[in-house]
């Protein structure tokens, strides 16, 4: 079966990625599959069945002609795209995921940093407090350093944004499988991360009722908030890394790439017909957040302003329904 699919993919490799082509491919595959299944049911060995199906398949020029792309095939100006080999794609995913880990670590250090001041100030000794402040700056420096370093390290992949790139069918397939396989990991990390953030206040509440000692109530308790939030945020940042990288690679293929074997996934960014709206929608949530904060701070009507969020979510759907570019 894989052989037939690969054969068909290689036959279609020179055709553009349009709806007609995808439909033709699907139809032809169904016919090949039917024939193959029947040959197998007749007791033919697998290899022979594949051989027969392929030998009776015919010539694709005919199909191209009838679905009206024969002309296109000749005129097709072959945009030179940089095809990324599958090892390189894999390396990118690996490295991006590591990059997210380091970013998470950097952010975690930044969140941890106030901790040293809180704990050392408990001692109420000048020298200790100086050490606390020193640690505070040290952690910030380390955090920022890590983030800067890993970002510079990632800049070698800039060409993915700057050049026209594409990936082949096998790579796309492999990436999709990998994404599926990591779905559970991602969900788990995300859940634990969010749970840690929510639970961060628990130690403070617990310690203040259990201990009378102010080292616990004023020092370790509050410090633990930063530990919880820091680890939680780190996990949240790390969780989506692999998927983001895979989505980016999958999004390289579009209707203009040859070797069309990719269809828009559900979690690809929405596209809009009107470029103005597309630009607006890109920063939609940022704009909404700004409006929310400005409105809230100006009026201090926090009890009302939250209404912006559900309204914005509904508005987004409405905008999508009116101007969204759908794939038929």
């Amino acid at each position: 079966m894989e052989t037939l699919k690969n054969y068909l993919e290689s036959m279609f490799a020179s055709l553009p990625n349009t709806v007609e082509v995808l439909k033709a491919k699907e139809e032809l595959y169904t016919m090949m599959e039917d024939k193959y299944n029947e040959l197998i049911a007749e007791g033919k060995p697998e290899n022979e069945a594949v051989g027969i199906v392929i030998s009776e398949f015919g010539n694709l020029d005919e199909v191209a002609e009838s679905i009206g792309i024969g002309q296109m095939l000749q005129e097709y100006t072959y945009v030179d795209r940089n095809q990324i080999p599958s090892e390189e794609a894999e390396e990118y995913v690996q490295q991006y995921s590591q990059h997210r880990f380091w970013i998470g670590l950097g952010v975690m250090l930044l969140i941890f940093s106030p901790m040293s001041i809180i704990i050392t100030s408990m001692a109420r000794i000048g020298a200790f407090e100086v050490i606390g402040v020193a640690f505070f700056f040290l952690m910030i420096a380390a955090g920022v350093g890590i983030i800067v370093f890993t970002s510079i390290n990632m800049s070698k992949w800039k060409y993915l944004d700057e050049q026209l790139c594409c990936i082949d069918y096998a790579t796309a397939n492999q990436l999709k499988l990998e994404k599926e396989a990591h779905r559970a990991d991602k969900a788990l990390l995300l859940t634990i991360g969010i749970a840690l953030c929510i639970l961060s206040v628990v130690p403070v509440i617990l310690f203040s009722s259990l201990f009378k000692n102010f080292v616990f109530t004023e020092g370790i308790g509050p410090a633990l908030i930063f530990v919880f939030v820091g680890i939680g945020v780190m996990m949240i940042i790390f969780a989506g890394g692999r998927e983001t990288a895979i989505n980016k690679l999958l999004a390289l293929n579009d209707a203009h790439t040859v070797s069309g074997s990719y269809r828009k996934g559900q979690d690809m960014p929405d596209s809009y017909i009107n470029p103005g709206i597309a630009g607006f929608m890109k920063s939609y949530w940022t704009i909404i957040t700004c409006v929310y904060l400005i409105w809230s701070f100006l009026t201090f009507d926090w009890h009302i302003t939250w209404i912006i969020w559900p309204v914005a979510a509904i508005a987004k759907t409405v905008i999508w329904n009116i101007w969204g570019a759908r794939e038929e």
């Binding site: 009776e56 015919g58 010539n59 694709l60």
Partner: peptide, 26 residues
């Protein structure tokens, strides 16, 4: 549907005519 038609063509023509998948789809 596609495969059924190609099968019938084969049997009615007494296996003298095998229609190619691409021809059929076109």
């Amino acid at each position: 549907y596609g495969y059924e038609i190609s099968k019938k063509i084969k049997s009615i023509s007494e296996e003298k005519y095998l229609i190619k998948e691409t021809t059929l789809y076109s």
